[in-house]
Design a protein around this nucleic acid. Structure first.
Lengths: 167, 167
DNA sequence: CTTACAATGTCAACAAGACTGACTTATTAT
DNA sequence: ATAATAAGTCAGTCTTGTTGACATTGTAAG
């Protein structure tokens, strides 16, 4: 209502309340789809999304510390620890004492951990590949630009750092 | 690794594993940002995201039934009912007996409900507006195309129906 | 009219995953 | 020596999801 007939000529005509609402709902439904396949697989193992996230980021930054992971995931150490403990107990994650600073713990996936991570990753990647393929290169670029602009500055910083690591 | 050097000439060169991983992480971080502002507001009221979702979709489809809402939200009626009960008790949502079918309950926001919904909506819309403005019209269009392609077919159907209602 | 089905609501029990707060143990830095 | 940091742990709470069972009311079909 606030701007649906606010024709100011500043080339922002496309930002009606309706389109913003559609964007919000698109995020909601797309995120559901985005997590649906991994959720099914995780269910087999009695794991949840929290386990997936830990596996994902340990895989992407092998040897990362607990503190680093806490910053990326944005949860408390008590919450992360619960998940990490089960992953270590189940031999999916290996913990090594830091070499430079012995207080730190460096986290790695075991071969079993890699196996599950790969299963989860490929399920999610397949869906994203189909979506990307369907939408075309221009849409993919737009998708990423909008998502980056939607992150908190802090999260965007973390995201950019991860991008640099992976090439 | 599976396709990062798979130059097949089918114009899919942009879909490297790295870019898919980046897309996955972009969704993760963007969704955090997307929910951050409403989460803060909801905290003031002792509500959670479930309350936000109910308010959002009741606002978008006034008079909607419980069953309809269940299909949109994809949760059990027990789960929805808990949320709906607090919203009714707090006079944010009004329940009217269906006219055609008296078993049905039609849901409406009260003026108080509209007030909170508006607060939540404008916080979320402001962030999305900034992101859209920053990214430009082409990016916005790409954003929506990819998100739609990422939904489950069932969710896409629901999403499209809602789009038709809102003009 | 009776029987079946549908829409809603409710009770109880459970689990994941987040939180706070307090406290310990190593280790490093000042 | 003392203080700060990294990690782990114990205990308790909350939201939000689940299952399963059951009750109520209204509609539809025979």
């Amino acid at each position: 209502m606030s701007n649906s007939s606010n024709i100011t000529g500043d080339s922002l005509l496309y930002l009606t309340d309706n389109q913003l609402r559609q964007g919000i709902e698109a995020m909601f439904f797309a995120y559901r789809g985005f997590t649906a396949d991994p959720d099914r697989i995780l269910g087999e193992y009695g794991y949840g999304r929290a386990h997936h996230r830990a596996l994902h980021f340990i895989n992407g930054s092998p040897g990362t510390t607990v503190n680093n992971l806490l910053n990326i995931l944005g949860v408390t150490k008590q919450s992360l620890n619960r998940v990490l403990r089960t992953l270590v107990d189940d031999s999916l994650v290996e913990v090594k004492i830091g070499v430079k600073d012995k207080r730190e713990r460096n986290l790695y996936l075991t071969s079993q951990g890699h196996q599950l991570q790969e299963r989860l990753s490929s399920a999610q990647s397949n869906r994203m590949r189909k979506a990307f393929k369907n939408a075309g290169p221009n849409a993919v670029s737009g998708f990423k630009i909008v998502l980056e602009a939607m992150m908190d500055p802090e999260l965007n910083r973390i995201y950019s750092n991860l991008r640099e690591e992976g090439h």
